[in-house]
């Protein structure tokens, strides 16, 4: 499969502090990439750079056969205010805004069908006439993912889409995202739940100020980073010193 995105030696930071340096990775068409790392390691900054919302300090991002209007996103801390007057249908439909060409972007009947379809994919077709302000947190998150699905022609980027949702709903979301991915959509997902990320993504990008990892999920599980992130580091260090060497594998 061809690479949709190739990132070479990317460095960036926020508020004048460097978050990560020399991060390199590729995103293959149809793959699922999970971006993990500790709080403040710059996962969201990295996503901002990918989407062109933020200028990296150095490095290169090459997109092949991928336009910005092909990407559907759900960003952390950028959710619309909860009391916003809009129906679920209006919110989902707005995902199509950047897929419309020309200055006046009117939605066709086909677009409305796309939006309805995205809502059913997320299991909330019955909510389309409800108002955004009346929904629960989980329902609102589904609407925003449906909007991202509407926008995503080739790539879906989800930054911590499950933060603050209860575990039962989280596993349901993973199923939905797996299904969308298996239908051919490339997915990049930022997650703080490393174990779940490894279970659902093909490749892992661990972002860290002191060196990053990029590779198959299976290989990541053998690293000290994985052990540290899943909170079993002490155990692993005492039991399996060979894992220490895995650090050499990082890029």
């Amino acid at each position: 499969m061809a690479n949709l995105i190739e990132v070479k030696k990317l460095s960036a930071g926020y508020d004048g502090v460097t978050a990560f340096t020399d991060v390199s990775f590729t995103v293959e068409e149809g793959s699922a990439l999970a971006v993990v790392g500790e709080n403040g390691s710059g996962k969201s900054t990295l996503i901002g750079c990918l989407l062109g919302l933020k200028k990296p300090d150095s490095g290169e991002i090459v997109m092949s056969g991928l336009e910005r209007s092909d990407i559907g996103v759900l960003l952390q801390n950028a959710a619309p205010r909860g009391d916003f007057p809009a129906t679920v249908r209006e919110a989902a439909l707005s995902g199509l805004i950047n897929r419309k060409k020309g200055p006046f972007r009117f939605y066709s009947r086909e677009d409305r069908a796309t939006a309805e379809n995205a809502l059913s994919q997320l299991g909330i077709a019955d909510l389309s006439d409800r108002h955004f302000s009346e929904l629960s947190g989980g329902q609102r998150q589904r609407v925003l993912i449906a909007r991202a699905v509407c926008a995503a022609k080739k790539l879906l980027v989800l930054d911590e889409p499950l933060a603050g949702l209860d575990p039962l709903i989280q596993s349901e979301f993973y199923e939905i995202i797996d299904r969308i991915n298996s239908e051919g959509m490339t997915v990049i997902m930022v997650s703080h739940d490393v174990a779940m990320a490894c279970a659902h993504a093909d490749t892992i990008l661990h972002v860290s100020g002191s060196g990053s990892f990029f590779g198959p999920a299976e290989d990541y599980k053998k690293t000290l980073m994985y052990a540290h992130m899943t909170g079993i580091s002490h155990h692993v260090i005492s039991q399996a010193p060979s894992l220490m060497r895995e650090r050499g594998k990082t890029e």
Binding site: R68, S69, I71, V73, L75, A91, S94, I97
Partner: peptide, 10 residues
């Protein structure tokens, strides 16, 4: 509704 979303799409 969501300026960041619109900007992310170009």
């Amino acid at each position: 509704f969501d300026e960041t979303f619109a900007a992310a799409g170009g």
